[in-house]
């Protein structure tokens, strides 16, 4: 908290803010390029396009069959959120409330898929899924996406459950609540904020999860981000603006959920996971 007022420290501060500004400006300029291009009639060798149009959105919509892709994307996300929520929260509850031999090993097992990049474990996983015939199907994509999201929910929820005083549960039992009633009337309301945060983060991460979906998706189970990859990969086949229109649709889908998520979580949580769980 010590602020220096010497010239040297002012120059140092200025240099740092310059770097931050440079990064942020380039980031926004990059996003603005995509958005501008998606509305451009023709844009070659000038600062701004010749004129603006919205027709690329309708052409992208039909060319890339975006309706189907969006449907698949949302179904995959819904399945991933529901399953990882169920598996993750129950496991987090057990890990937060009980101490048993092998617990540390189990936590490590749940930590690994978050530390190892998806492409590393995705290739053997895809191999297994191809052998079992799941790859290429809807459930294959869901299964692959669950590998990092179940541990993610567990690790976000453990500290959240730990800070709920077990005495509250004991008190409910003393007043005669059954296990089911305990869950519905006591635990669920207490866990809701944490669950909401964890599941929103899962949602945002799943929309953007490229590698795992790419490795196991088939023609009928492609999500938006993978479709975007293929479109950019085959650039030249379609108009650049059409691809950019698709990219904007992808961005909007992601950002809507990001904005919703940020009402409930701190931005740093998206990266640092359980580290900055706010204490209620």
């Amino acid at each position: 908290m010590i602020r220096d007022t010497t010239l040297g420290s002012k120059l140092w501060a200025a240099a740092i803010w310059f770097l931050v500004g440079f990064f942020v400006i380039n980031l926004f300029a990059m996003i603005a390029t995509v958005v501008t291009s998606s509305f451009a009639t023709r844009w070659l060798g000038t600062w701004l396009p010749v004129a603006f149009t919205t027709r690329w959105y309708s052409s992208a919509w039909s060319e890339f069959q975006l309706w189907d892709i969006l449907m698949v994307t949302f179904q995959v996300i819904a399945a991933v959120v529901i399953i990882s929520g169920t598996l993750g929260i129950t496991a987090a509850y057990a890990l937060a409330r009980r101490d048993f031999p092998g617990k540390r090993l189990l936590v490590l097992l749940f930590l690994l898929p978050l530390l190892i990049p998806p492409i590393t474990f995705g290739i053997p996983l895809a191999t297994v899924l191809y052998q079992t015939g799941l790859a290429g199907t809807f459930w294959g994509v869901v299964a692959a996406n669950l590998v990092p999201t179940v541990p993610f929910v567990i690790l976000v929820m453990i500290p959240f459950i730990e800070q709920i005083d077990p005495k509250i549960e004991a008190a409910a039992r003393v007043f005669g609540a059954s296990t089911f009633k305990l869950f519905i009337h006591v635990l669920l309301p207490l866990l809701l904020p944490g669950m909401l945060a964890a599941l929103l983060l899962v949602l945002v991460r799943t929309i953007a999860m490229f590698e795992l979906t790419f490795l196991v998706a088939g023609p009928t189970s492609t999500t938006l981000v993978v479709a975007l990859y293929y479109a950019v990969f085959a650039a030249g086949v379609r108009a650049v603006q059409s691809i950019d229109a698709m990219a904007v649709i992808y961005m909007v889908t992601t950002l809507v959920w990001l904005i919703i998520a940020l009402r409930f979580v701190n931005p740093t949580q998206i990266v640092t996971r359980a580290k900055q769980q706010p204490a209620h």
């Binding site: 953007a208 990859y229 992601t254 990266v271």
Partner: peptide, 30 residues
């Protein structure tokens, strides 16, 4: 600032690649 910085992480590598292709290209704004 943290919200701005979380943008590229949430948008993901594919979108960043697609954006930079235009932005850093020979005719791009950069």
């Amino acid at each position: 600032l943290t919200t701005i910085l979380v943008l590229p992480i949430t948008l993901g590598t594919v979108l960043v690649a697609e954006g930079l292709l235009n932005y850093l290209g020979p005719q791009g704004w950069f």
